[in-house]
Nucleic acid binder design. Structure first.
Length: 602
RNA sequence: GCACCCGUAGCUCAGUUGGAUAGAGCGCCUGCCUCCGGAGCAGGAGGUCGCAGGUUCGAAUCCUGCCGGGUGUACCA
């Protein structure tokens, strides 16, 4: 079975070096187009390569110090002069033409002040024109990237611990799509393996098809727990399980029938959760699909002299690479998940011709993927470097230790249900308090908001961190949460409806030259850069951060007494409405990439 | 033992391709609904960036060694 999250207990004497990472995906953390203009003029003034300058440009700590900064320490050192002196000299040579209003030295830095009107005139029409395409990139040129994610075990319930792989993987699929790749979302279902034998073994004594039909996956889970309980007093049961799995492998009709039944029952429940999360896989092959493709892999390994026998088992010795021994066949002749993953990797390569193959799987399995990549390398696959484990931290639980063997899991559905329930209460309450009519589709809205909260609570964290599951945090709608972002967008949608004026770019840009508007336009401009970094690092939280920044900057403006979007001044209204609309567009696009819907009211 | 991940405010986390006085959210305290939706906004208190060295004009960021937590380390997946 392939449950990617279940801890493994392989043994390996030596440690291992992480494989060299594939070539860097990006060259520079490119900045806005304005940074480039700034860099070009500095490069000319100081006689330096533009790219070197661009790499050094950053943002000053405060808005009063401008929007772009160039530190002079390095050239000062090369030219044996004090940095402030160099900065002053460069600043003196630069003219502050548009889009800059001023360029001046601040100690050892040369800082540029951008013209808010010029920035707005540049950014906002693009947002309007590009609409849903705003922020997207063409880094991938339509090349295929396969993303293996979620990959739950059949016959076990879909727990909260599956959330991480599922939402991170889903976000990555969308992010790669937005960056111009052709992603293929793959759900590598754990529908094969020795644990199926356990289920079949306990079924013999305790199985009941009516109960299965009624209880669904919960019943299978109960059986699984029952097996483990019974095993303690009856060790022979393990052999029985092995025999059952053997029968399944050999095509015993009754075993196959039951296996298919278990599979269908489980899939039905998984589909419900996937549908709620808006996830649609491109490829749902289970491990069973690769059964007949493993002999070819083993054959090739043997032909290339990579196999060794060790204690009856067949292994690829990776000791010299610090990766221990990779087991590809057990002493009893049956295969392991490494063997299946090797067959699957080859199949994916043949089928999709990917340029990157991602595995969104917990960090606990780093060794497995390192071994897999190394074996592919030894087999001479020139695409081995494209195989990439995208690890994420463990989900732990606040109060208690969770044990799948005892059936002690929090079903994902119950977390979603609770979030949706709270969202519904909030909507109804909110409508009453504000004297607004209750929305037509309260349940649909609650679903969008509740699920948005759960999904974002995961995606705002950097992938590799372990996260502690905390109901209060996952179900929070305030602060840095999905509902906060949705709410910001919903308020704007509501204004657009009320104003009744069409969004236009025929506006007086000078009314948008305040520091708040400028910061906001630069944040909007930065959305695609967050996307660039997110796909380079397989890190959705980079987009989450940018969205929070955009929403927060807009909310600050919005809350000001002296800053109303809709006013008697039609010119001002049109300009601010365009800005607000751009914010809504950016939030909608970014949240969409993260797999979160945006309602137009809440 | 060895390897990998993590260690930043009371809590949850940004910041980690070296750059200016280390930033948010939650919680706590103070304000803000005659005015576009308060799921919001503003302000305050709160920090030896795990510890100790080192490199550097400059270190939360890079290097070394420790400490703490997590994970992995051959017939489960």
């Amino acid at each position: 079975m392939v449950d990617r999250r279940v801890p493994s207990r392989l043994r390996c004497d030596a440690g291992w070096d992480p494989l060299p990472r594939p070539a860097p995906r990006t060259v520079r953390p490119s900045m806005s187009r304005f940074a480039r203009v700034f860099a070009e003029s500095i490069a000319a003034a100081a006689d330096l390569p533009v790219d070197d300058v661009l790499g050094l440009i950053g943002a000053p700590p405060k808005a009063e110090m401008g929007q772009l900064a160039f530190p002079c320490f390095q050239i000062a050192k090369a030219r044996h002069a004090p940095p402030p002196k160099i900065a002053a000299e460069i600043a003196a040579e630069l003219s502050s033409d548009a889009p800059f209003t001023a360029i001046k030295a601040f100690g050892p830095y040369v800082n540029a002040f951008l013209d808010g009107a010029a920035v707005a005139r540049d950014v906002l029409p693009r947002v309007l024109a590009e609409g849903e395409r705003f922020g997207r990139l063409d880094l991938g040129h339509g090349e295929a990237v396969v993303v293996d994610f979620s990959s739950p075990n059949i016959a076990k319930s879909f727990g909260i611990h599956h959330l991480r792989s599922t939402v991170i993987g889903h976000a990555l699929v969308n992010l790669f799509e937005a960056a111009g790749y052709a992603p293929v979302g793959i759900n590598h279902l754990g529908d094969w393996g020795t644990q199926f034998g356990q289920l079949l073994a306990i079924w013999k004594t305790d199985g009941d098809e009516d109960a299965l039909a009624a209880g669904g996956i919960q019943y299978l889970l109960d059986l699984y727990v029952k097996f483990n309980t019974k095993l303690e007093g009856e060790p022979g049961l393990q052999d029985e399980a092995r025999a059952c799995f053997k029968a399944l492998e050999d095509g015993d009709p009754e075993a196959r029938r039951l296996w298919k039944l278990f599979r269908d029952v489980s899939l039905a429940e998984f589909e419900t959760s996937y549908r709620r999360l808006g996830i649609d896989f491109d490829d749902m092959r289970g491990e069973s699909f690769y059964e007949d493709k493993m002999p070819a892999v083993l054959d090739e390994l043997r032909r290339k002299g990579l196999l060794k026998t060790s204690d009856g088992a067949t292994v690829v010795d990776l000791e010299e690479h610090g990766l221990g021994a990779a087991l590809v066949r057990k002493a009893d002749g049956s295969t392991l998940y490494l063997t299946r993953d090797l067959a699957a990797a080859q199949f994916r390569r043949d089928t999709y011709r990917f340029v990157r193959a991602l595995y969104v799987v917990g960090g606990a399995q780093a060794l497995h993927f390192a071994q897999m990549t190394k074996v592919l390398e030894l087999l001479g696959r020139d695409w081995a470097g494209a195989v990439e484990h995208v690890p994420f931290g463990l989900m732990r639980f606040k109060d208690r230790k969770m044990s799948t063997r005892k059936g002690d899991i929090i079903p994902l559905a119950s977390v979603l249900d609770r979030a949706v329930e709270l969202a519904k209460e909030r909507i109804v309450e909110g409508a009453r308090e504000k004297g607004l009519p209750e929305p037509d589709d309260v349940d649909g809205l609650a679903e969008t908001i509740g699920i948005g909260a759960v999904v974002f609570s995961d995606l705002k964290n950097r992938r590799q961190r372990d996260i502690v599951f905390d109901w209060d945090e996952v179900l929070s709608f305030e602060g840095e949460t999905g509902p906060y972002l949705q709410y910001t967008a919903a308020r704007i949608a509501s204004m657009e409806q009320k104003s009744g004026r069409p969004i236009t770019t025929e506006v007086d840009w000078t009314v948008l030259d305040g520091p708040g508007e400028l910061a906001l336009c630069l944040a909007l401009e930065g959305l695609s850069d967050s996307l660039r970094r997110a796909v380079a690092e397989c890190e959705p939280s980079l987009v989450s951060d940018k969205l929070l920044e955009i929403a927060s900057l807009f909310s600050t403006l919005y809350a000001r007494r002296d800053w109303k979007v809709v006013s008697d001044d039609e010119g001002l209204t049109d300009a601010r409405m365009l800005l607000a609309h751009a914010v809504r567009q950016a939030l909608g696009n970014g949240l969409g990439w993260l797999g979160i819907q945006v309602p137009d009211r809440m």
